[in-house]
Amino acid sequence: MTDTPLKLVIFDVDGTLVDSQAHILASMNWAFAALDMTPPSREQTLSIVGLSLPQAMARLVPEASAALNAQLVEAYKNSFADLRQRGESAAASPLFPGAIEALHALAAQDEMFLGIATGKSRRGLDHLFELHGFGPLFHTVQVADDHPSKPHPSMVLTCLDETGVAPENTVILGDTTYDIEMGRAGGIQAIGVDWGYHETDALTAAGAAMILSDFAALSEALDQIWGVV
């Protein structure tokens, strides 16, 4: 009889665990308005969710100088924090249905580690931890402050290093092509979700092993990937 190998599920945050689009859109609009610039469309803003802020701004305003890019990044950070401090409803960022139940179910398994790989800052993620109380469930947490932007595999590789879990026993769950591409670049399987900010066809094209329509299907999907019978 062999020991059950350790397993790791890495979660993206925005668009996967948390529906933060109202907060993101409000912050982006505020940041551009603060610099007397026309804000990007909703579709444009949601297309860059998951990227680190400098890379996100560079995609939204490719002609911007480095100085203007830095101003936009700082304005976004200030607006994001300001919305929270003023108690704006946009800052609520609710969990998607079934997310907390799925996290607790996985965390209850002795052989299972949980991780986070997010384009959010440490400050932004700490706010969500305070808001929803799920921080203690995670064994490894990677944020944009400490890594190159997705889809660079640095976050995934650090999760693997900190937990000691083998790549073949690790899966990432995400709603954007950046998550899927990051996972594949890090040598792990990736599962897409259809309730986030990128189209499912794009997730499949990026290499997602499967697409989930709700968190209730996550356990069975993991069993399928890991060949559990």
Rank of each mutant, 00 (worst) to 15 (best):
G187I: 07
W195I: 01
N69G: 06
A66V: 09
V156E: 04
A107S: 15
A108S: 15
R59E: 14
S89I: 03
F80K: 05
P94C: 05
A107C: 09
G164S: 08
V165R: 02
V13F: 08
E130W: 07
Q142Y: 04
D19T: 03
Q224I: 04
V171A: 00
R59Q: 14
L131S: 12
M210H: 11
T45S: 00
V61K: 09
K120Q: 10
M112W: 15
V49Q: 03
E111V: 03
H104M: 08
T177K: 14
A209Y: 15
H132V: 00
G87R: 06
A117T: 12
S149L: 04
T158L: 14
R122G: 08
A221S: 10
A75C: 14
I10G: 01
F113D: 07
L157W: 11
A31C: 06
E220W: 02
I172K: 04
M37Q: 13
E199A: 12
A117K: 10
G192W: 03
Q55E: 15
F215T: 00
A66C: 05
M57I: 13
E220H: 13
T38P: 09
H23V: 00
E130Q: 15
G183V: 06
S89A: 11
D126E: 09
G227E: 06
E130D: 15
G133H: 12
A70R: 10
T38V: 13
D110E: 13
